[in-house]
């Protein structure tokens, strides 16, 4: 199974009712080495250094699948607007938020089945699944 299979998949409730489409897949990156404040401060003092040479960068380990973001209306990207506190540019933020209102995060443990044999891919949720906030 790939992330590409899950994106744009139809999401069905335990009773078979359509809940929306998967608009994104959320992961938790294990941070194995975190930079100290001193390194970050040094990066800020030297803005000419390319990002790849910055000292204040973390090192990541494994990426664990947390869950799926499900939008009841639109399968398109929401540009991250409803997941963060970004409010500008105002007209675009309003439009995208309106298009994706009702979006929720469903934990991977609440996913009962992923059927990849047909198109579109079907994701079925367990009974009593929890609608969590999509905020990052």
């Amino acid at each position: 199974m790939n992330v590409g299979d899950l994106l744009d998949a139809r999401v069905l409730g335990p009773d078979g009712a359509a809940l929306g489409v998967v608009v994104d897949v959320r992961f938790a990156l294990e941070v194995v080495d975190e930079p100290d404040d001193e390194s970050r401060e040094r990066d800020r003092e030297d803005p000419e250094t390319p990002l790849s040479a910055h000292l204040g960068r973390d090192a990541v380990g494994g990426a664990r699948l947390v869950g799926l973001l499900v939008s009841p209306r639109s399968g398109g990207s929401f540009l991250g607007f409803e997941r963060t506190e970004v409010r500008s540019p105002w007209p675009i933020a309003q439009l995208v938020r309106r298009r994706h209102r009702g979006t929720f995060l469903v934990g991977w443990s609440d996913v009962a089945e992923v059927r990849t044999d047909g198109a579109p891919v079907i994701v079925r949720l367990v009974a009593g699944f929890e609608r969590r906030s999509p905020a990052l």
């Binding site: 994106l7 897949v25 959320r26 941070v31 790849s52």
Partner: peptide
């Protein structure tokens, strides 16, 4: 101490450039 950072596939990972250890 290890902790976790939350990322979304479409927002933070897909279509991103991959650089090797030399920055290439």
């Amino acid at each position: 101490m290890t902790h976790e950072r939350i990322v979304d596939a479409r927002l933070h990972l897909l279509s991103r450039q991959v650089l090797d250890a030399d920055g290439e």
